[in-house]
């Protein structure tokens, strides 16, 4: 797992391997550390992740809630079919802004940053 702050407004976390109850504790700490600073926008890169379950979804949803409370947003990069299936059937794909590419996810966050807080997915009618 790697985590870095880019351009002072964007936190980027890249995950590899499996995200479950065992590995999730470290990911949760990384998100909390990033969000404790000035970062309100979070891009989570799952392109190299092989497995996710409800624990990972819960951590991501927690990160999304925290980001929106701080006026920011979350976006997830994920292309693997088995992971997308978990996002889709749990109903979290839209809430977490899951996209196929890094650029698409970054565009979601950039648009949100420019457009204020009115279009957060979790607050849509």
């Amino acid at each position: 797992m790697t985590a870095e702050v880019q351009d002072e407004w964007l936190g980027v976390v890249k995950l590899t391997g499996e995200l479950d109850a065992y590995s999730g504790a470290e990911f949760r700490e990384v998100i909390e550390t990033l969000m404790a600073g000035a970062t309100a926008f979070l891009l989570v890169d799952l392109m190299a992740l092989e497995y996710i379950d409800s624990v990972g979804l819960g951590i991501l949803m927690g990160g999304a809630k925290r980001a929106r409370q701080q006026g920011g947003e979350i976006a997830v990069v994920c292309e693997r079919a088995n992971l997308r299936r978990v996002f889709d059937i749990s109903g979290t794909a839209e809430l977490l802004n899951v996209r196929d590419s890094y650029d698409e996810a970054l565009a979601v966050l950039a648009a949100k940053r420019q457009g204020g807080t009115s279009d957060a997915p979790g607050e849509a009618e």
């Binding site: 949803m61 978990v86 749990s90 109903g91 979290t92 809430l95």
Partner: peptide, 18 residues
């Protein structure tokens, strides 16, 4: 309430869907 605070509910929901 699968997206609420009760993780166990989401786990069972995923089991049933998968």
């Amino acid at each position: 309430d699968v997206l609420g605070d009760k993780q166990g509910g989401l786990g069972l929901y995923l089991m049933q869907r998968l």
